[in-house]
């Protein structure tokens, strides 16, 4: 599998909508395409006016697998970029408690 960054800018009108999308995403990924796609982590973006977007890190067998996953889980995709290398300087900061 290769690692990809997926941009989903302004994908949802509210964090609640995003929460529902995350459940669908997980379900589709784990149940229907476990050999094709692995969700690693996401960063939720503040997009203004209460809406949110994401930058997601996935591992997948191909960009098409990411698009198939997005279409099955009803997630937007703006751009898919292949990750060449990873440089971890510090671990991710602990998520802010909701």
């Amino acid at each position: 599998m290769n690692t990809y960054v997926i941009l989903r800018r302004s994908g949802w009108r509210s964090p609640e909508d995003l929460g529902e999308a995350a459940v669908r995403s997980r379900q589709v990924g784990d149940e229907q395409m476990p050999d094709d796609i692995r969700w690693i982590r996401s960063y939720v973006l503040e997009e203004g006016g209460g809406s949110v977007g994401t930058v997601c890190i996935y591992q997948a067998t191909s960009p098409e697998a990411i698009r198939r996953h997005a279409s099955l889980a009803d997630l937007p995709v703006d751009e898919i970029v292949a990750v060449l290398d990873t440089v971890v300087v510090r671990p991710d900061p602990a998520p802010v408690a909701a």
Partner: peptide
């Protein structure tokens, strides 16, 4: 076809 669809969508590979 695979390469062309990727190119047209702006996908990698």
């Amino acid at each position: 076809v695979l390469g062309l669809v990727r190119a047209r969508r702006g996908d990698p590979g």
